[in-house]
Computed example of a mutant assay.
Amino acid sequence: MRVRTRWTAGLLAVAVTLTLTACGSDSDDGDSSSLDTLPVATAATSPTDTAKPAGTVVAQDAATAIAVAGSTTAVLGADGRTVTLHHGAGQDAPAPNRVALPIDGVVDLIALDDHFLAVGPRGLVRVDGDGRTSVADAPIDSPLSLAVDGDKVLVGTAKGKVLVLSAAGERIDEFGGFARVDDILVAPTSATDVEGQVSVFDRAQSAILPIDVESGDRKASLRAGNGATNAVVDRFGRIMVTGTRDDEFYAFFGDPIVMRLRHPAPASPFALAYDEKHDLLWVSSTAENEAVAYDLSRGDARERGRVPTVGQVTAMAVDPTSGDLLLASGRGDGLQVVAPTVIAS
């Protein structure tokens, strides 16, 4: 079933504001026991009888994260022990390089210039495009997410903490008081109005929670529906979130943040990817095995196209050079590559 689009751009009605004003520090972990939480939403199980995926599909084990650095796409295996490096997806592309990681339990992967950075319980792992790896030892209790803010590495945990580390893995600070830190969004330098803004995405609170990583101070925070699962920040500093339980997606922006957009999406929206060249937001639907592109260039959300996908899409990314949409399957259906020409003008 497809959701009929209804434009709700510019929605400024305030969502439920969270009263999170306590500061975190080395000596104050914050008390998360009294937080208003929800059961964490999960994606619907994908059907197996939908349309053939668009574009090209190459072999890839079940995956949890995907990132692009230069001409290389890295896919983190669901086993938490491998990263597969893809150097193209055509018939003439070289065979992928499956890299065994030097630590187990790796949970997140991001791109940094010409290499990748991953995190697990034993620390940070650098993965170069040629498959070489190195480890910065830093024991981390229950890591969930990873981001970089300037020369600082930010790690979110299932215990509701944001850890501030150096590139070498040295602990600089930590801030608690969240239910869990499923993602950390850092507004890029191109986001002139909110450059450097750091926000926590917490699935258990279904919320976006800005934080000052210098002091631990938390600013006014907003609910994101009743079962949000993923978030991404774009070049303007807008934070987009999938409302998986409510079949919606949201956009937040500003300091303090406000909800700028609330829009219906196909059933069980889950993974997100932002195409900065075309100002498109891609939203995957695990219930329908589809990905939908929304044009955000006017501040509203206009549907621009739909493509059939591999099953159980867990992560998406857009190659900033080619504009290709990359989709990773959480059940081992492969890595899907879709050229930008599929989007109608």
Results as ranks from 00 to 15, higher is better:
residue 32 S to M: 03
residue 17 T to H: 13
residue 17 T to D: 14
residue 11 L to W: 12
residue 59 A to L: 09
residue 78 A to S: 15
residue 51 A to E: 12
residue 13 A to Y: 03
residue 74 A to N: 07
residue 61 D to K: 11
residue 53 P to M: 01
residue 89 A to K: 01
residue 91 Q to N: 08
residue 45 T to K: 11
residue 54 A to E: 00
residue 73 T to V: 14
residue 74 A to E: 09
residue 74 A to V: 08
residue 46 S to E: 00
residue 90 G to I: 03
residue 22 A to W: 09
residue 10 G to E: 06
residue 68 V to A: 11
residue 78 A to H: 05
residue 72 T to E: 06
residue 48 T to I: 08
residue 20 L to I: 13
residue 39 P to D: 06
residue 46 S to R: 00
residue 65 A to W: 01
residue 33 S to E: 11
residue 57 V to E: 00
residue 26 D to L: 14
residue 86 H to C: 08
residue 63 A to L: 04
residue 83 V to T: 08
residue 81 R to A: 15
residue 47 P to F: 00
residue 19 T to K: 15
residue 21 T to M: 09
residue 52 K to W: 06
residue 13 A to R: 11
residue 87 H to R: 15
residue 37 T to P: 00
residue 15 A to W: 04
residue 37 T to Y: 01
residue 44 A to Q: 12
residue 33 S to W: 05
residue 63 A to M: 03
residue 75 V to P: 03
residue 80 G to V: 03
residue 66 I to N: 02
residue 14 V to S: 15
residue 72 T to G: 07
residue 18 L to G: 04
residue 16 V to R: 14
residue 72 T to W: 05
residue 81 R to V: 13
residue 42 T to N: 09
residue 38 L to V: 11
residue 74 A to I: 06
residue 64 T to W: 07
residue 39 P to R: 05
residue 90 G to F: 06
residue 88 G to S: 04
residue 39 P to L: 04
residue 69 A to Q: 08
residue 41 A to V: 11
residue 46 S to L: 02
residue 54 A to D: 02
residue 82 T to W: 01
residue 60 Q to R: 06
residue 37 T to G: 10
residue 12 L to C: 06
residue 18 L to R: 13
residue 50 T to P: 02
residue 41 A to H: 11
residue 52 K to E: 15
residue 78 A to G: 15
residue 15 A to Y: 05
residue 79 D to G: 02
residue 48 T to N: 09
residue 62 A to N: 04
residue 90 G to E: 11
residue 18 L to N: 04
residue 8 T to Y: 12
residue 88 G to L: 07
residue 20 L to H: 11
residue 55 G to N: 00
residue 51 A to R: 04
residue 21 T to C: 05
residue 70 G to A: 09
residue 18 L to W: 08
residue 88 G to T: 03
residue 88 G to K: 05
residue 87 H to W: 01
residue 58 V to E: 00
residue 43 A to K: 13
residue 26 D to T: 10
residue 27 S to M: 06
residue 11 L to Q: 12
residue 13 A to N: 06
residue 65 A to R: 15
residue 9 A to Q: 13
residue 19 T to A: 14
residue 61 D to Q: 10
residue 22 A to V: 14
residue 64 T to C: 08
residue 67 A to K: 10
residue 77 G to P: 00
residue 41 A to P: 09
residue 64 T to Q: 12
residue 9 A to T: 09
residue 16 V to T: 15
residue 55 G to R: 02
residue 59 A to H: 06
residue 69 A to F: 13
residue 23 C to N: 15
residue 86 H to P: 00
residue 82 T to K: 05
residue 84 T to Q: 05
residue 90 G to A: 15
residue 89 A to Q: 06
residue 40 V to Q: 11
residue 55 G to T: 02
residue 42 T to I: 07
residue 15 A to R: 13
residue 51 A to G: 03
residue 66 I to Y: 01
residue 52 K to V: 13
residue 10 G to Y: 07
residue 79 D to L: 10
residue 89 A to C: 10
residue 76 L to F: 07
residue 49 D to H: 07
residue 43 A to Y: 09
residue 30 G to E: 10
residue 53 P to R: 00
residue 47 P to S: 02
residue 27 S to N: 15
residue 51 A to M: 03
residue 77 G to E: 02
residue 74 A to W: 07
residue 82 T to M: 02
residue 68 V to C: 06
residue 51 A to W: 00
residue 44 A to F: 07
